[in-house]
């Protein structure tokens, strides 16, 4: 149990995907203008990251590694993730149109989100087994969502602030991200 706690806290806070590892910056700055869309994107990322961790770990542990094909992992993983996102999109559209309405537009964006491929590659490079990989995927997605939600709250306030012309929109978001990163740096050494 302690191991899993370490993985969860490590992935969510200490090595936060956005603020420390710099993965998934495009949606972090692109979808963080409103809290509602940030929440939708965050939930979609948690879902896809967890499922992608399961599938890529199974493929790597039972298919690629025993046959000495681990050098194929980049090609295989990116194709699996792209196919998986398509499949999830189709399944959600069929079985839960309401959920599709709120998450649907974010799903295609996730294929090119480097955080999803990042977590899959990280799982195999740190030699996690199947269960730790799933925990890591879930916690990394939760960490991404946490950062995205805080950012969207900050940016809703920034809309009202008097920001210098050159700093408007994205540059000031980067500076805010720096302050968030400083906060998250305080977590280092917790585990």
């Amino acid at each position: 149990m302690v191991d899993y706690m370490a993985i969860i806290i490590g992935a969510m806070f200490i090595n936060n995907f956005v603020l420390v590892r710099f993965l998934g910056l495009c949606p972090f700055f692109g979808v963080s203008r409103k809290t509602s869309s940030a929440l939708g994107m965050g939930l979609a990322v948690i879902f896809v990251m967890t499922v992608a961790s399961v599938v890529t770990s199974v493929i790597y542990i039972y298919l690629l590694e025993p046959r000495g094909l681990d050098f194929m992992k980049i090609v295989v993983f990116i194709l699996v993730i792209a196919g998986l996102v398509q499949l999830i999109e189709m399944a959600i559209r069929k079985y839960s149109p309401d959920l599709y309405k709120s998450l649907g537009i974010f799903l295609p964006l996730i294929t090119t989100n480097c955080a999803v491929l990042g977590v899959a590659l990280l799982n195999v490079s740190t030699d996690y087994g199947l269960i730790p990989s799933v925990v890591n995927g879930l916690a990394s997605g939760a960490g991404f969502t946490l950062a995205l939600l805080i950012m969207s709250g900050v940016r809703e306030r920034l809309e009202l602030a008097d920001v210098p012309e050159a700093f408007k929109d994205i540059p000031v978001a980067f500076v805010s991200a720096m302050f968030m990163g400083m906060g998250f740096a305080g977590f280092s050494g917790v585990v």
Partner: peptide, 21 residues
């Protein structure tokens, strides 16, 4: 450190926006 990267890139983005404006 990681958060210093955000600051550096943020200031550079502002500088490029200033030149563009």
């Amino acid at each position: 450190l990681p958060y210093g990267g955000f600051l550096t890139v943020g200031v550079l983005l502002a500088a490029f926006a200033y030149i563009g404006n």
